[in-house]
């Protein structure tokens, strides 16, 4: 009885990537293509001249309706290494503050001959609305990359996490991956879950108190744990999530201290995972809240490598979109 097409709006009629909006519904060949392409871009960043001409003459607009320095910067670096012109618009402080609607802003930017929008927005689904609008006004030559929408998705982060896991662990099928922390509010967690499923991950676990878990995770193929000691047992990959300051002392959690005791990743807890388990974090970290410094800086942490891989993955996404 569905009224709206269930066709994934990020794929064109031939199943090619037109926008990157979510890892959900992203076919395995597309994910593999992105990860393989990222691998080939990784060496570009090691060159003296860190540039390839793939996006020369193209304009990439960074539309950040929600503040973010780090993600915006990585997109900017990625676009510049592809030789694109990058225009940063801090929309959170300009047009929307003047009362302009989201779609009015988009219409204006279309007139400035954009080729790609990298969008971050505080409301889940905003990049879908933009993609749908572009189609309606006949401007679906412009690609949309979701750089984080509300609690929904952060697909480039999800893909760079997959890149990282593949880099260290090769095959997904025998892996046990645990995601720990505020999954309810995390777009990173959702993007990881869908990508892990598509990549055939052996076992996906979520570890958190009930106040930080959405319902129906089992339906997404996730095993839910409330106890770190059980949940971390024999894991190959531990993905820690950032706990936002505003969630620490309130109705969801009594205190950062109690949270750290139960869910903070310490060397003792990490010892329950496999000896070669890797520790990931999308950043920025709250040391002493979700992760102990000795783990964050320890030999199992691959957190800074994630950042490096992130640029290659974002280059890959933009490169593939521009070619489709």
């Amino acid at each position: 009885m569905l009224t709206q097409s269930r066709l994934n709006p990020q794929l064109d009629a031939e199943g090619k990537l037109q926008h990157l909006l979510s890892t959900e519904g992203l076919p395995l060949p597309v994910i593999t293509q992105i990860l393989d392409t990222a691998e080939s871009f990784l060496e570009v960043s090691d060159r003296d001249v860190k540039k390839v001409p793939l996006l020369r003459g193209k304009s990439v607009f960074n539309l950040f309706f929600e503040n973010s320095t780090r993600t915006r910067t990585t997109f900017e670096i990625a676009a510049k290494r592809l030789s694109a012109d990058v225009i940063n618009l801090d929309v959170s402080r300009s047009s929307t503050a003047k009362g302009e609607t989201l779609l009015d802003t988009i219409d204006n930017l279309c007139s400035m001959h954009a080729d790609m929008f990298v969008v971050r927005h505080a409301t889940s689904g905003a990049p879908f609305l933009i993609a749908e609008h572009l189609k309606r006004i006949g401007r679906d030559d412009i690609h949309v990359v979701n750089a984080g929408d509300g609690r929904h998705a952060h697909p480039t982060q999800g893909l760079l996490d997959m890149y990282t896991i593949r880099h260290y662990k090769k095959d997904f099928s025998n892996l046990t991956v645990a995601i720990v922390g505020d999954i309810l509010h995390s777009r990173v967690a959702r993007s990881d879950l869908h990508a892990l499923r598509t990549l055939g991950c052996g076992e996906i676990r979520a570890i958190a108190p009930k106040t930080l878990l959405p319902g129906y995770l089992e339906n997404l193929g996730v095993k839910v744990f409330h106890d770190m000691n059980e949940g971390l047992k024999d894991c190959d990959v531990v993905i820690m999530l950032r706990l936002q300051n505003e969630r620490m002392n309130g109705a969801l959690l009594p205190s950062a201290g109690e949270y750290f005791k139960r869910y903070g990743l310490t060397p003792e807890k990490l010892a329950l995972a496999k000896p070669d388990a890797i520790v990931m974090h999308p950043g920025p970290m709250n040391r002493g809240v979700e992760i102990d410094s000795s783990v964050a800086d320890g030999p199992q942490a691959v957190i800074l490598n994630q950042v490096t891989f992130g640029i290659a993955v974002r280059m890959a996404v933009m490169g593939i979109l521009a070619g489709n």
């Binding site: 959900e24 889940s124 689904g125 929408d149 509300g150 609690r151 929904h152 998705a153 777009r187 959702r190 959405p214 319902g215 129906y216 995770l217 339906n219 997404l220």
Partner: peptide, 13 residues
């Protein structure tokens, strides 16, 4: 609705 869709789409339930 605080159900599977909201969980997937990251919508407050």
């Amino acid at each position: 609705h605080d159900g599977e869709m909201a969980a997937r789409l990251g919508l407050a339930g």
